[in-house]
C-alpha cells in the first residue's frame, strides 16, 4: 500500500473516466506514463486494489486488449467479471441504457467497455457510478492503446516529445489512429497520416495532422512508423482495389524497411496481416517494437486502473470536451 500511495502522490491525474485521449490534459497523460514506468521497474508486492471489482464488458470481440486488462487487474488484486455479448442480455434486446443501469445496481468499481458504436462508453459513463475505461469504441478512440504506444516510444526513443510519427493505413476507420492523433497533438509531436485518399477522413488536418498519399517520402524523415491493420471488408466496400495493390503502395515491404533511418522504430497495434500492410521482415526486425507494445500494455493498464481508483471519491466529472460553437 505504501508503494502505491507514494507513486500516486506525485501524479496529477484528474479524470473520473478514461473515455478518450481527447478528454485528457497533458498532466493526465504524463501521469499514466510515469506510473506505468514505476510499475514496470518495481512491481507492487502487495495487491493495492484487492476487493475492487472490474467488469469487462466487451460487445465487440477482442483477445489482446481483454486479456491485457484481465492480467493488469488481477496483478493489482482486482476481481474481474467478464461479460461477453453472447451471455449478456444485449442479445435479448435490452437497451444499452438498461444494461448500464443493471451493471450499476450490481455494484462494480470500474467498467472496461468495448463497443462497435463510437460514443457508447461516454453514453454508459453518464449513467454509471463506476469509472469507465474505453477499450475501443467504433472508429472513435482506443485510449489505452495510444498510451501503451507512447510508453513504448519513450522506452525505445527516450522521449515522448519532439517526435515525428507516421500513421499508415486505414485512418478513416481507425480508433488507434484517432487516439494517437489526440495524444501527439497534446505533446506537440508532428504526425503524418499516410494512406489512400479513400481511407483518410475529410478534414483530418484539423486534428493537427499532415496528410500524405505516398509512403516513400516519409520513410527517412520519421521517428516512428506505425502501421495500421487493413481490413478486407474495406476492399469489399470499394475503398481500395486489392490487397496486392495496397501492399505495393502502402505496405512496409522489405525494401521500404531497408530505407528507414537507423533509429526509426516500427509499430503495429495488432493483429497484423503479414504480407499486406507489413512484411514478415518488418514485423520481425530489430526495429519492430510490436511485442514490446503488447508487454507494455499490461503496465499501462495497471496504471490506468490505479489512477482511476485513486480518483474515486474526489468527485470528479470528466471534463467536457471543448465546444467550438460558432453559430448560436
Amino acid at each position: 500500500m505504501a508503494w502505491t500511495s507514494q507513486v500516486l502522490a506525485t501524479t496529477r491525474w484528474n479524470q473520473a473516466h478514461l473515455l478518450g485521449i481527447r478528454d485528457l490534459s497533458r498532466d493526465d497523460l504524463l501521469s499514466v506514463l510515469s506510473v506505468a514506468r514505476e510499475l514496470k521497474n518495481v512491481p507492487p508486492s502487495d495487491a493495492p486494489l484487492r476487493g475492487r471489482r472490474l467488469l469487462a464488458f466487451f460487445v465487440e470481440s477482442s483477445t489482446r486488449t481483454r486479456t491485457s486488462f484481465g492480467i493488469a487487474a488481477r496483478r493489482l488484486g482486482m476481481e474481474v467479471i467478464d461479460v461477453s455479448p453472447g451471455s449478456s442480455s444485449l442479445s435479448k434486446g435490452e437497451s444499452l441504457k438498461d444494461t448500464t443501469r443493471t451493471i450499476d445496481a450490481m455494484g462494480v468499481d470500474q467498467v472496461v467497455i468495448r463497443h462497435p458504436a463510437s460514443g457508447a462508453p461516454r453514453f454508459v459513463s453518464n449513467a454509471l457510478r463506476a469509472s469507465v475505461i474505453n477499450a475501443g469504441d467504433g472508429a472513435n478512440e482506443h485510449p489505452t492503446q495510444a498510451l501503451l504506444d507512447l510508453f513504448t516510444m519513450e522506452e525505445r526513443l527516450g522521449r515522448v516529445t519532439g517526435l515525428r510519427i507516421a500513421l499508415v493505413g486505414d485512418i478513416l476507420h481507425s480508433r488507434v489512429a484517432r487516439s494517437n492523433l489526440w495524444a501527439h497533438r497534446l505533446l506537440g509531436n508532428r504526425v503524418t497520416v499516410v494512406g489512400p485518399a479513400t481511407l483518410v477522413p475529410r478534414d483530418v488536418q484539423a486534428m493537427g495532422a499532415d496528410v500524405s498519399h505516398r509512403l516513400d517520402p516519409v520513410l527517412e524523415t520519421h521517428d516512428v512508423i506505425m502501421m495500421l491493420r487493413l481490413q478486407l471488408e474495406r476492399q469489399h466496400a470499394g475503398l481500395f482495389p486489392s490487397t496486392a495493390e495496397y501492399a505495393e503502395l502502402f505496405g512496409l515491404t522489405r525494401e521500404r524497411l531497408a530505407r528507414l533511418r537507423e533509429d526509426t522504430i516500427v509499430m503495429h497495434p495488432g493483429p497484423m496481416n503479414r504480407g499486406w500492410e507489413i512484411s514478415a521482415e518488418a514485423a520481425d526486425s530489430g526495429r519492430s517494437v510490436i511485442l514490446d507494445q503488447v508487454a507494455n500494455g499490461v503496465f499501462v493498464r495497471m496504471a490506468v486502473l490505479l489512477l482511476l481508483d485513486s480518483a474515486r471519491g474526489k468527485n470528479l466529472t470528466t471534463k467536457a470536451p471543448k465546444h467550438e460553437e460558432r453559430v448560436s
Partner: peptide
C-alpha cells in the same frame, strides 16, 4: 455531417 466533427469522433459522415 461528413467533416471535421465526424472525423474527430470517428463517426460515419453524411456528405
Amino acid at each position: 455531417n461528413e467533416g471535421r466533427v465526424a472525423t474527430e469522433l470517428g463517426l460515419r459522415g453524411w456528405p
